[in-house]
Computed example of a mutant assay.
Amino acid sequence: MRAGLPVARPGMTVGLLGGSFDPAHEGHVHITEEALRRFGLDRIWWLVSPGNPLKAHGPAPLAERIAGARRIMQHPRVEITGIEAQLGTRMTADTIAALQRLYPGVRFVWLMGADNLVQFDRWDRWQEIAARVPIGVVARPGWRMPARFSRAARLMWRARLPGLRARQLARSGTPAWVMINLPLNKLSSSAIRARRPKGN
């Protein structure tokens, strides 16, 4: 195991929540705590990304975003990481493949907001991601219906599990995905950035 990477034992279920977290906020905390409970996960790792190829403008420095995430997300079963920078991976498919090699026997679940499901078919090797790990989709304001009828959802409709089986997701064969509806929290990183004073 590489130094500095989180610890996980074979048989554990670990949710992976990737994003720029620019900045991390209470909405991320809300999603994380609900995903731990609703998907029955042992751990969740935040994967604070070096950059997002689908975003036009680069995020704040990685160390700054990790520090901010650690201030706001304090939970004994949640780890804030810069795994992609440590592994030298940029694409989600490569990151997941590397983690599966490093952690044999650990059951990973990819976590995403419903807004990401809408554009999931634009991700690099998205079908490989779905073949490697189950996917837990968390409903966010205004995205429930677009997510349900997105191209990726239509192509994966046979693999969808009902919400009542969400706790079985981590131990399901792939492809498999569940969309859960949460009490909605409207906070978003983009809205917070928009409220920042110019130059901050």
Score class of each variant (00 low, 15 high):
residue 185 N to A: 11
residue 134 P to L: 14
residue 105 G to T: 09
residue 134 P to R: 12
residue 99 L to T: 11
residue 14 V to N: 02
residue 120 F to C: 03
residue 191 A to E: 09
residue 85 A to Y: 11
residue 192 I to R: 10
residue 74 Q to G: 03
residue 125 R to T: 09
residue 153 A to L: 14
residue 94 D to W: 04
residue 6 P to R: 00
residue 127 Q to G: 10
residue 72 I to S: 09
residue 73 M to K: 01
residue 142 G to D: 04
residue 48 V to G: 07
residue 20 S to C: 11
residue 55 K to D: 01
residue 10 P to A: 09
residue 185 N to H: 05
residue 161 L to M: 15
residue 59 P to R: 03
residue 25 H to G: 11
residue 21 F to H: 07
residue 130 A to N: 11
residue 181 N to T: 15
residue 129 I to K: 15
residue 54 L to N: 13
residue 117 L to Q: 04
residue 56 A to Y: 02
residue 53 P to I: 03
residue 77 R to E: 05
residue 84 E to L: 08
residue 18 G to C: 08
residue 127 Q to V: 11
residue 2 R to V: 15
residue 100 Q to Y: 06
residue 66 I to F: 00
residue 12 M to L: 06
residue 1 M to T: 08
residue 143 W to C: 08
residue 72 I to P: 03
residue 43 R to Y: 08
residue 82 G to R: 09
residue 150 S to D: 09
residue 62 L to M: 01
residue 139 A to I: 03
residue 12 M to R: 00
residue 64 E to G: 12
residue 148 R to S: 06
residue 58 G to K: 05
residue 1 M to D: 04
residue 131 A to T: 09
residue 177 W to S: 02
residue 165 R to D: 07
residue 127 Q to A: 10
residue 199 G to S: 14
residue 31 I to N: 07
residue 77 R to F: 03
residue 161 L to P: 12
residue 36 L to Q: 00
residue 157 W to K: 13
residue 44 I to H: 00
residue 90 R to M: 07
residue 119 Q to R: 04
residue 92 T to M: 15
residue 126 W to N: 13
residue 132 R to K: 13
residue 37 R to S: 04
residue 154 R to H: 02
residue 165 R to G: 00
residue 128 E to I: 07
residue 139 A to R: 06
residue 195 R to I: 06
residue 100 Q to V: 06
residue 82 G to L: 15
residue 167 R to G: 00
residue 91 M to G: 08
residue 142 G to C: 01
residue 176 A to R: 12
residue 112 M to E: 05
residue 160 R to S: 09
residue 68 G to L: 06
residue 73 M to G: 02
residue 86 Q to F: 07
residue 199 G to F: 14
residue 66 I to M: 02
residue 96 I to R: 15
residue 74 Q to R: 02
residue 188 S to P: 06
residue 51 G to R: 09
residue 116 N to V: 01
residue 102 L to G: 05
residue 56 A to E: 06
residue 144 R to S: 08
residue 8 A to E: 03
residue 93 A to L: 10
residue 116 N to D: 02
residue 185 N to P: 02
residue 157 W to E: 11
residue 48 V to F: 14
residue 68 G to C: 09
residue 149 F to C: 02
residue 148 R to T: 09
residue 105 G to D: 01
residue 181 N to I: 15
